[in-house]
Design a protein around this nucleic acid. Structure first.
Length: 456
DNA sequence: CTGGGGATGGGGCCC
DNA sequence: AGGGCCCCATCCCCA
């Protein structure tokens, strides 16, 4: 195609932020490029000013990185060590870990210290998470501002203005004045809580994730709320009628938001289970081999290895399985069913994940020049986007391969209106997705046909 | 590259 | 409300 002058093309790299953070964390661990050392009661933590300023309102103020303060000479320019004895070493370590990994890993017993540290440093989402877990509510909430918050952006609630007023002042040391702790290096108005007076621009800014790109979780949450009747389709049509037919009728009540990742967890009592994915806690230990699990139902299945129990026998052969879904997969072998067809090369798979793998890899390089007019099999939504994603961007089309409306493809990538590939809309049961996806497919097909006819 | 088994995490139903 | 149990989707690993 001729990119020419018809506008900008935005190619998203979803992994970039993770990789960036990961590399920054590696730099922190090795001390590379660290220009700030935090200390607490003798413990020293090398870190990066820019990261701390990005995650902490306190440091942002301190370094003059707050919006509109660029002109000022932030105190941080002359400081390389920040003594934070008011925050316990463990809490400080946890907060730093959070800053560089977006995951807070702490013991329950240390929660209060972390909360205190998060309040002091103006790391509001952590403070909120700790408060949630501790069952506390933030004091001094301004009902007026609360009412102003758009209800659809709950995530921002986590980033509300820090109002915690702390009497504790961190102590600064500078290489030039190592022994003059409070030598005017503190922000004029002290700790972050004191600095703030309800500045309304701050909640938007203070977040750990890009604001404009809806997260997976948000999307799924939004989807769940917008179309609850679709969300229950999980057991409806999973290939071959594996379900007993009674179906799962409705979302369970009480969806809860994870204070760490903001994901909406559905089902009463499921949040603690989810939280263990963040904390890494594995309270369920196998008495036979000592392997630990985050969930007791997983331990129970694990125990089948020791007992030799394989409760899912294949009716057609002697095979027995540990899991019901293994049997389900296995049964498709007997039936010969291959309901998952690659829309590019039409190769069929018995398992959806195998199709996904096939499409993600480079195994499917054969682009059809013309699709069947009304495909019999299911076709995932955003198939064209996946053409691009499957082969990297930009697309190294095979010689002779023809893609009508290439700009359409680019636009699909640049403006992923429906977050195409990760999770096929409305689940992935082939029968269900067929009805959902045919529309998108047909639209594309019409355009494609039109283009094709033009060429002909 | 594909087939197959296993692991992990989320959701629904039930108690 | 919390937890047990089950099913599901997805990912990883190995042959």
């Amino acid at each position: 195609m001729s990119p020419g002058e018809d506008g900008l093309i935005g190619i998203p790299f979803p992994e970039h932020s993770n990789e960036l953070l990961s590399r920054l964390n590696a730099q922190r661990r090795t001390g590379l490029l660290c220009d700030l050392t935090l200390t607490s009661r003798g413990a020293r933590y090398p870190t990066h000013r820019s990261v701390m300023a990005a995650v902490s309102l306190y440091f942002r103020r301190l370094f003059g990185a707050e919006e509109g303060e660029e002109g000022e000479e932030g105190v941080g320019h002359s400081c390389s060590v920040c003594q934070l004895d008011c925050v316990s070493p463990d809490a400080l370590a946890a907060l730093l870990e959070f800053a560089y990994t977006a995951t807070l890993t702490i013991r329950s017993s240390g929660m209060r210290e972390v909360l205190k540290g998060a309040q002091l440093l103006g790391i509001q989402c952590v403070a909120d998470a700790c408060r949630d877990i501790l069952g506390e509510t933030e004091t001094g909430e301004d009902p007026a501002e609360e009412a102003e918050r758009p209800p659809s952006r709950r995530k921002q609630d986590r980033c509300s203005v820090a109002r915690a007023v702390s009497p504790v002042r961190p102590v600064w040391r500078s290489p030039t004045a190592p022994d003059t702790p409070e030598s005017g290096l503190l922000p004029a108005q002290g700790p972050p809580g004191l600095l703030l007076n309800g500045g309304s621009h701050w909640p938007q800014e203070f977040t750990h994730r890009p604001e404009d790109t809806p997260s997976e979780e948000e999307e799924s949450a939004a989807q769940g709320q917008a179309t609850p009747q679709l969300g229950q389709s999980q057991g409806d049509g999973a290939g071959g009628g594996a379900t007993a037919g009674n179906g799962r009728k409705r979302k369970s009540q009480m969806p809860q938001q994870c204070p760490v990742c903001q994901k909406i967890i559905h089902g009463a009592g499921k949040l603690p289970r989810h939280m263990r994915t963040h904390t890494g806690e594995k309270p369920f230990q196998c008495s036979a081999c000592g392997v630990r699990f985050t969930r007791n139902d997983k331990l129970k299945i694990h125990m089948r290895k020791h007992t030799g129990e394989r409760p899912y026998p294949c009716p057609s052969c002697p095979a027995r399985f540990l899991h019901s879904y293994d049997l389900k997969n296995h049964l498709s072998l007997h039936s010969g069913d291959r309901p998952f067809e690659c829309p590019l090369c039409h190769k069929a798979f018995a398992r959806e994940d195998h199709l996904q793998r096939h499409r993600k890899g480079h195994s499917c390089l054969e682009l059809r020049t013309r699709r069947p007019r009304r495909p019999a099999g299911p076709h995932p939504p955003g198939a064209f986007v996946q053409i691009l994603e499957g082969h990297g961007v930009p697309v190294p089309l095979l010689p002779g391969a023809r893609v009508p409306y290439p700009e359409l493809l680019w636009r699909s990538v640049a403006e992923p209106a429906g977050k195409a590939p990760e999770k096929p809309e409305g689940g992935s049961s082939p029968h269900r997705s067929a009805s959902v996806t045919h529309r998108a497919w047909d639209e594309d097909e019409e355009k494609q046909d039109a283009a094709g006819e033009e060429e002909e």
